[in-house]
Design a protein around this nucleic acid. Sequence first.
DNA 1: CACTCCCGCCAATTA
DNA 2: TAATTGGCGGGAGTG
Length: 899
Amino acid sequence: ENIYDRSRMAPKTPIKNEPIDLSKQKGCTPERNPITPVKIIDRPQPDPWTPTTNLKILVSAASPDMRDREKKKELFRPIENSEQGDTPDSLQYDIVDDSTVDEFEKQRPSRKQKSLGLLCQKFLARYPNYPLSTEKTTISLDEVASILGVERRRIYDIVNVLESLHLVSRVAKNQYCWHGRHNLSQTLKMLQEAGELQYGELMTSQHKEQDLEYKFGERKKEIIPDSQDRPLLDFSEPDCISASANSRKDKSLRIMSQKFVMLFLVSKTKIVTLDIAAKILIEETQDTVDHSKFKTKVRRLYDIANVLTSLGLIKKVHVTEERGRKPAFKWIGPVEFPEKTDELRGHSPTSDPLPDTQRGGCAQYQTSATGKQRSARHASFNSAQPCEATRRKISSEPNSPHQERQACIVNSDENCSKMINLADVCRHKIEEDTGNKACDTAETILHSAKNSNITLPFSLLPVPGDSDFCVNPLPQAVFPVVQADVPSLSLPNGISSQAPHPSTPAASKTENGKPALVPNQPFLCFPSSSLFMLCGGLQENNLGEPLPTAGDLGNRSAEAQAAIPPTVCQKRSSHKCSSPSAPVDDEEPAAKKQTLEHSDLPLSLVLPKKPSESPKTESSPGSGCSAAVHLETNHLDLASPAAPEVANKEFTKSSDSQEQEKQSQNKDPDEPPPGNEHISKENANQPFQPQYLYVQPTAGLSSFNFLFSANQAPGAISLAANQLPSLSVPCVMVPSAALTSFPLVCSPSFTSPLSPVPDGSFSAAASTNFSMSSLASSTPVFISTTAVVTPKVSPAPSVDPQQPAHPALHLSPVLTRSCSAVKLDSPVCVGHPVTLLKLQQPSSAPLTPKSIRPAHHEAFFKTPGSLGDPVAWKKNEGNQTRNASSVQRRLEISSTSPD
DNA sequence: CACTCCCGCCAATTA
DNA sequence: TAATTGGCGGGAGTG
């Protein structure tokens, strides 16, 4: 904006601030630097006073409106592009020329598009809700401002509010540190306590706002001794920042924000009207509430409310009182704060803030449903019977669009829940699969995906669109990031793309049901922080590179694509395993494996050797799985040998690519045969095991991980940046705790060939995981075998035979354990073989969101353009990224599809 | 017309 | 002194 503005502005206003601008305009080079957002940048259009230029000027002079329009046009362009991608930059320039208004009108971003709330969502989307503790994300105001295409002032508005909740802290000039929501509960708890002290009384009495008003009016002064309050607030989360100071007195926005939140926390109704809040907040000024002052406060409250809404903590509502309808906000965030808050806090029914956030704009509209789901989730979580609960949830859920969104929304906050979700998903899939793929949308998606990768996915996915925000709301940068990287991936399906959506993916899928898991295929999820994966026989080729470079990605993606088709066929595993994975890799498996290992560093899992050792399995209760275990072993063996290569490569993609994971499978159903077969043949050696990949989320993704059926989309796999060796393993559910205790290891040695996965046709589902690291302990891990569900193939067996004992595949004790664990869930135990792939973790690849970002951005911009994507859907940045990826995928797909 | 709230001037603070 | 922060309120967009 700055950039464009300036130029435009100049005419308008002399521009006080920056003479520079003008000068620049003229001189300037059009390009804008990403780096310094600031002003100038844009093309100087004017300088040369082209005929048009003059014209423009005249026009502007003549009519403010026109000028305005143009200005806006320009301003927004960047944003629009990013979001929608429809108009290429080039257009901008062109457009600019004609002063004519016409076009630009269409483009002209409506005021809403520039809202602080939307901006905040974009901002939040850049960072994970629950960043890994390890990585510190620093936020550069300039950078963010330029990226988001807004002036810095606006970023302050957001950051100040976030800072009041300790989601960020200021570390230095222009530098903020992103903390995420880890401490949100704590902060809220503190605010609640502080609020009770100050306002508690009032609130108590409060029946209605009116009362409150009175009381507040009266007491404000008394109760709230401001000065102190502030400190409290600040302190609330000393940890983050030193409370250094209160340097300025004010920070009024920060303080106001905290007080505003306090009002909600103290209020029984959880509803606070703006006017009351304004009155209360005026505090000091209190009495003389001059109107102007009041108005100003209200303006500020809107600013704050927009941010809080984006965070999913409140939503706008209206209260009707005698006087009439008044604007108000309702707290939809957590109400109770467990001690830890961090982790579990979700319990309270209303509590999960995150979801809301994700919902973002949507939240407002959909609240109720979401809340329920959440609660369900929580409940399940709490109960420790995630599975059932989850199922119920899922089952109960109708698949409405909203729900989908919600699903998407899933937040990181509760990893556990995620886990659960995943598990559920798995089940669902299985069930569904068994039953059939019925699942509606999800299924459709899958199918579509399968068939043609392209189409459906989108539709299903809410994603692309802006709506996206709502949909995607994921704050997490992750996706975007991923996408960027991923794009190369060929995710065949939209699915993958979607999956990416933040954390939710799993959830969403889950909820929806279908998508998430592959029906037949078995998969493993480990809670381990890092994660891992599994894939049914895939080959691994992978490299493991943690972060592939773009180039790499591309290559891989290509590979992946190639591979993908084949992969599709999961179900048929029996036939062949099509899997195959990957054609690509033929190369030396062993070598690769090794390589993989390297790459794997991050891997959490290692499969040592044989799984057979079931004995170890102790971990949980599970006992029952011994059989399963055996299976595993067998499977594992399979993997080892030859196949590995293929898959791996694909995996290599980067963690980023995780998203990609998702999808791949899609195709199977429809097309399974043809393409796949080829592959399968190649892979033939490999058995068909279904494979899943679990990808750990990279930093951005933080919260989720996905599992993919390996077979499905190789591409997907490829996406996964990590490559891990894959193992075939039966699915197991393991309590996270168990997992935690051990590190999972995958023996690199095994790689299984991706390919085949005939069996499950579904593959599609990618399930997400959550990062477990933290969760892990608490959460159970689960692994499910699809196999169980789908009898179809018992590819596994075949596999086993093949390589029964490969050292390579070892199941680590973990596995065994897991097996035992698995019992829990049920079906899981069954044990189809599954291949696990290791993915690298994020850790290894220290991708910081930032690093990622850039790519994303580029991706965005380019993607659309390159694609020529008609679609407008991608508006949001985050979405964009996603979109981009999706787009890319499409492209890829399309390419693949040809055959 | 009321509600929202964008925009950006400009002062307070910092570096 | 320059740059960063952020208070503040005019006034525009929406409904």
